[in-house]
Amino acid sequence: MDETIIRRLRWRTRRGTRELDALFGSWLDESFAGADEATRKAFDELLDVQDPDLWDWVMGHGRPGREDFARIIDEIRARHRL
């Protein structure tokens, strides 16, 4: 795995709240390396979403319109029992 990509994504997982930092940072640590290229790209694009939307999705108050985003959010929710 290219360390430059990981460092860039690590920086991008730093969100407006400590909770989102932890949730997305842990997905990066635990799942990114084993993910297929499409899922990696989706994670990168997911980090462009505004924090209030990400928070609503991980808390189960809404669902992303994209299925690839929804799969990542579901993994995060399942891992952290949200």
Score class of each variant (00 low, 15 high):
residue 9 L to D: 06
residue 81 R to H: 13
residue 8 R to T: 13
residue 75 E to M: 06
residue 15 R to L: 10
residue 26 S to N: 13
residue 60 G to C: 09
residue 12 R to Q: 12
residue 37 E to S: 14
residue 77 R to G: 01
residue 41 K to N: 11
residue 51 D to K: 09
residue 55 W to S: 08
residue 55 W to E: 11
residue 27 W to C: 01
residue 14 R to E: 14
residue 23 L to I: 02
residue 27 W to E: 02
residue 57 W to I: 03
residue 62 G to W: 01
residue 31 S to E: 11
residue 34 G to E: 06
residue 22 A to R: 13
residue 3 E to H: 02
residue 10 R to C: 00
residue 19 E to L: 04
residue 16 G to P: 04
residue 32 F to D: 01
residue 62 G to H: 02
residue 20 L to T: 04
residue 9 L to Q: 07
residue 59 M to C: 12
residue 21 D to V: 05
residue 9 L to W: 10
residue 16 G to F: 05
residue 71 R to Q: 12
residue 46 L to R: 06
residue 66 R to T: 05
residue 79 R to Q: 11
residue 30 E to L: 13
residue 1 M to T: 09
residue 10 R to S: 15
residue 61 H to E: 13
residue 58 V to S: 04
residue 2 D to H: 06
residue 4 T to I: 13
residue 22 A to K: 07
residue 63 R to D: 10
residue 31 S to N: 13
residue 6 I to V: 11
residue 5 I to C: 07
residue 80 H to N: 14
residue 2 D to T: 05
residue 66 R to A: 15
residue 23 L to Q: 01
residue 28 L to P: 05
residue 70 A to R: 10
residue 71 R to P: 00
residue 22 A to I: 12
residue 77 R to Q: 08
residue 1 M to G: 15
residue 10 R to D: 12
residue 22 A to G: 06
residue 71 R to H: 12
residue 38 A to K: 14
residue 50 Q to P: 00
residue 52 P to T: 02
residue 77 R to A: 05
residue 46 L to V: 09
residue 62 G to K: 04
residue 59 M to D: 10
residue 41 K to E: 15
residue 15 R to H: 06
residue 81 R to S: 14
